[in-house]
Design a protein around this nucleic acid. Structure first.
Lengths: 194, 194
DNA sequence: CCCATAAAGTTTCGACACGATACGTTTCGT
DNA sequence: ACGAAACGTATCGTGTCGAAACTTTATGGG
């Protein structure tokens, strides 16, 4: 009997491949590579601390030079906009243009997946997601990668009142919309129970 | 509250990315790209109906021309061997050389994953794998992709005696070792229960 | 204040993936 | 025997990717 962990690994790898192929096919109409779509998806979810080339490079696991090239292409196509940061002249802020947001919406990347899991109960999905999140966190910790979670699950996030949040790291107020976005400085809260 | 299916999708995508980055880092020492390692892994598990460039292309979701280039590189490095098929002069049979098998073994690609899931119970792993397999099958069916399963789970496989198998498609006998390998012609048995 | 150091981004280079297309060979159906 | 189909290869253009050199801006001592 084969190890259960290896069976799961195999399935995740094949799903990852299939999703990647799906991204490729989805992007071919616009002349976009999988990495371009992943960048757009990230920037669509990144909060104001995390919308920089460097953060994107860390998220994707690529070097900053490589990412710089892809961003060049996206800017040429007017899918993203680059602005210099006001406080720090070294950093560049990346935002999706309206065209970029529209492109993402048109692609409808999640439809196939939603259909594929239509039959499964929420409880089973939630259970599966939990197992995979553990694996993800363990792999990220082992490789020294950032976790890139949302503020809601971050130990820096302080809930100081009804719909009022403050990031303990930057001491800045966060809107209730912003705390559900992805942050580069995310550090998961400790889980005591297993 | 966000849809459970979308949370799972996000986790699978990020895991897929991480595994891909891991493949890249593992292969950099030998000057191999992720796709090369995936090809080696596939050929290591493919049965005698499925060790061809065309089957590999379908498995990876790439065109045959692209795969042909990667195989050229692998053959140059003496990691695979190519033989003309005896019966059909059009097809090329691909096998791992000893050097190819050794390379795979040295990389130890599954160790990190095994460690990451060390804490999870087999029952939870099995449950998660089941959900993902359903998603995989649904996506493959929708896109007209082959399933590339092992003969044991194939409706063509006939168990005609103790450790004695026959493939109903080719009418050939299969060894008990062979029925646990990946086949291009795999077609899953019908599941009545949902 | 000055200078070393670090950090964020860009640029350039070489190797290679990838799709599209054209092409050659072999097999199969009629 | 002949055309269609299948398998594989070769070529071309675009773009990814890491490595390394470089620019600009910030930071931290003396």
């Amino acid at each position: 009997m084969k190890n259960q962990a290896l069976i799961l690994l195999d399935t995740v790898e094949r799903l990852g491949n299939l999703l990647r192929v799906g991204l490729r096919q989805a992007g071919v109409a616009q002349g976009l590579q999988p990495i371009h779509l992943q960048a757009l998806l990230y920037l669509n979810e990144a909060n104001r601390y995390s919308n920089t080339p460097q953060a994107l490079a860390e998220y994707l696991g690529l070097t900053k030079g490589t990412v710089s090239q892809s961003l060049l292409l996206l800017a040429r196509r007017r899918l993203i906009a680059r602005h210099a940061d006001e406080k720090d002249g070294r950093v560049v802020r990346l935002t999706l243009t309206d065209k970029g947001k529209e492109t993402l919406k048109e692609l409808g990347l999640t439809n196939a997946w939603r259909d594929a899991l239509q039959a499964a109960s929420p409880a089973r999905l939630s259970s599966a997601a939990k197992v995979l999140k553990e694996a993800l966190a363990a792999l990220q910790a082992k490789n020294g990668h950032r976790t890139f979670g949302v503020c809601v699950t971050c130990r820096h996030n302080l809930h100081i009142g009804p719909r009022s949040y403050v990031c303990g790291l930057t001491k800045e107020k966060l809107s209730s919309r912003e705390v559900s976005k992805i942050c580069r400085e995310h550090s998961p809260v400790e889980e005591n129970a297993v």
